[in-house]
Nucleic acid binder design. Structure first.
Lengths: 117, 117
DNA sequence: CGGCTCGTACGATAGGCATCGTAGTACGTA
DNA sequence: TACGTACTACGATGCCTATCGTACGAGCCG
């Protein structure tokens, strides 16, 4: 090896300029993925895949994370056996200022509206 | 007839409380529908279905308008043979403040980024 | 080394959906 | 009434996708 990479495996991410609004909206139109993004935004850091306790199998969870990554919503890197996930907030805010916050706020409002008394 | 309705045909719309964020995002994740919404926002009024010159057949156009209506994004009423379409801006702004503007701004920025020099 | 955990890959399946074409309905007008 | 316009309904088609199960690979630990 010539470079001390974090891991031997690396994952394809779209460049900032390749991120499409339609793709982002489609990625966020799935309840599971919207939930993942909300949790990531709440901690404003990185989380492992296994941190999320979703009501689907691990195969499906992997699929959702890939959709989010390929849409440019999250960034993923391997760290040992774990895979860390983080929101691409800088890129999204740069491309679509205010959009992510508006989406998160909308999701939070809907959660309050539907989930509580 | 007991009521002077605008038309004999009426179209089912979701009530404001029934509008779901995921549905709105899904509706807007299609390029055709995003384009329709952008045009509606630009005129801030009502437009007929036939006003839109989309690169799809009229069947498909009807389908897209129905998706937008059932998601709660647009409101439709018959006026004679024409069907008028308008954004449900008040309802969307009430449920998700700032979201629609952020989405329209994001779409405009992407259009500039992709479409012009 | 042996096993354990985390995550992936692949195939299958079932459902959704964007698109089309054709046939039909509602409304206005000559 | 007869015709034209605006939109709809329905069926077909092909693609995408959310889900699962099983088998596998990569890295840690005893």
């Amino acid at each position: 090896m010539t470079s001390p990479a974090v891991s031997t495996r690396d994952l394809p991410h779209p460049a900032r300029d390749e991120i499409r609004l339609e793709g982002v909206l489609h990625a966020l139109s799935d309840p599971m993925r919207l939930r993942i993004v909300r949790e990531l935004a709440a901690v404003s850091g990185e989380l492992t895949c296994s941190h999320f306790d979703l009501p689907v199998t691990k195969s499906t969870t992997t699929h959702h994370f890939r959709v989010l990554r390929e849409a440019g919503v999250v960034q993923q890197i391997y760290r040992g056996t774990a895979k860390m996930n983080g929101l691409r907030r800088d890129d999204l805010d740069g491309l679509f200022p205010g959009l992510l916050d508006a989406l998160l706020d909308a999701a939070a409002r809907q959660a309050v509206r539907l989930g509580s008394a």
